[in-house]
Design a binder for these strands. Structure first.
Lengths: 218, 218
DNA sequence: AATATAACTGATCACATAGTCAGTCTCAAG
DNA sequence: CTTGAGACTGACTATGTGATCAGTTATATT
């Protein structure tokens, strides 16, 4: 009865609580989720949650750490295959585990230090991937490579945060499996790959933007 | 004492409550804000909030409507100046009013119908702007103009939702005044304007993506 | 088997919350 | 002046919250 396992679930109670919390937080937000709801979802008592995590904030932190670790893991495994243009492509949550991507989408905006560090790491990876792409001749030389890496990363993650809008407008669940995201990648490729401006319009815009006060180059 | 106005503030109490709610919601989120906190901020009793708005949800809806109306207003006024590439540039909150942009950034992700409608409207505007740009020869022809308009809009709005990350990584407050955002525009221009891929790499990637279903392992 | 340690529960606490209500005050119209 | 309606308040309620705690059960160690 009071065993470590409950039902046919072989996860430890601690893991079950964490996963339940991630699911609840992803679905209704951290503030919108009570410990009671998590306890019911994990089929444990509410007291056990606090026994394991101390406070709700502690649970939140544990969720952040787990999500970050999960994503880092899949990121490095995907990274081995070669440089990736789309930072999002490097992030793929296991379909069987807790909904890490949804959780991240929810918590990206209300900045915890753990998530901030994750974002920083993704930027670094994107920066490296861009440099690699330039070196291999796949990408054009970039004037502000780091800044471009940052913006590309935040565009991707921002789209993740707004994935419900993307689903409504585009009919694409960018959190879903790779084949579901293929349409998005094609659209992104059209915008980012060849560029939108005509050559002369780009030169003109560039000159107009370059004019201001100070110049920041690497 | 019980007059319509309080202190030297000539807004109606109803407007003061709404503005205070927007400020609190923007700062700490809707769920993280109590009616008591709003009442204190607006210098009214908590009962008056419910007298005017019925429920907290009603207040939230009123905030959404006000924010949407404010942004729509500035959007159309900016639109008169000509087609805009960056959807964000069309949105500028008055510096004196409540922090509408911060509020929008907070609420973009937890989709209310009002905000969803606003997003749809911005997409329409971006779509029209793209078409205009193509027509005037500023932009290259676009294969999937509507989809590109959607993605560009969501990238911009997603960046807005993640503006704290942008500030940390880029040192740019994209909510701030236009001159503050100039650096971001230059970066976005480098990525979107001329494109990142070399010509042959783009052709190659494009061909690879055009194939209906393929397992893409780079 | 004995014992210590950790897992776990359910009752309970103090507190914050959204919402209700009775009644006061202001002001304008009759 | 009277009256009625809406603005407004402060006390109140019912409920939900995170957290505490005493006590119980399981697991591991010896």
């Amino acid at each position: 009865m009071h065993s470590v396992n409950a039902g046919d679930d072989d996860r430890t109670a601690r893991a079950r609580i964490r996963d339940a919390a991630i699911a609840c937080f992803a679905a209704r937000g951290v503030d919108g989720t009570s410990l009671k709801a998590i306890a019911e979802e994990a089929e444990v008592s509410q007291g056990l949650i606090l026994h394991h995590f101390g406070t709700k904030k502690g649970l939140r932190t544990a969720c952040d750490e787990y999500a970050v670790a999960t994503i880092q893991e899949s990121k490095t495994s995907v990274m081995g295959a070669g440089p990736q243009v789309d930072p999002l492509a490097a992030m793929r949550a296991d379909s069987d585990g807790p909904p890490v991507m949804e959780y991240l989408a929810r918590t990206l905006a209300d900045g915890s230090p753990e998530v901030a560090a994750l974002v920083d790491g993704i930027v670094e990876a994107a920066d490296a991937a861009l440099a690699e792409g330039v070196k291999s001749g796949m990408l054009k030389p970039i004037d502000q490579p780091r800044e471009v890496a940052i913006v590309l990363t935040l565009w991707s993650l921002g789209l993740l945060a707004l994935h419900r809008h993307a689903e409504r407008l585009l009919g694409v669940d960018i959190i879903g499996p790779p084949e579901e995201r293929a349409r998005y990648v094609r659209i992104a490729m059209e915008a980012l790959g060849r560029g939108l401006f005509t050559d002369e319009a780009y030169q003109h815009a560039r000159d107009a933007l370059a004019a201001p006060d100070e110049e920041r180059r690497s």
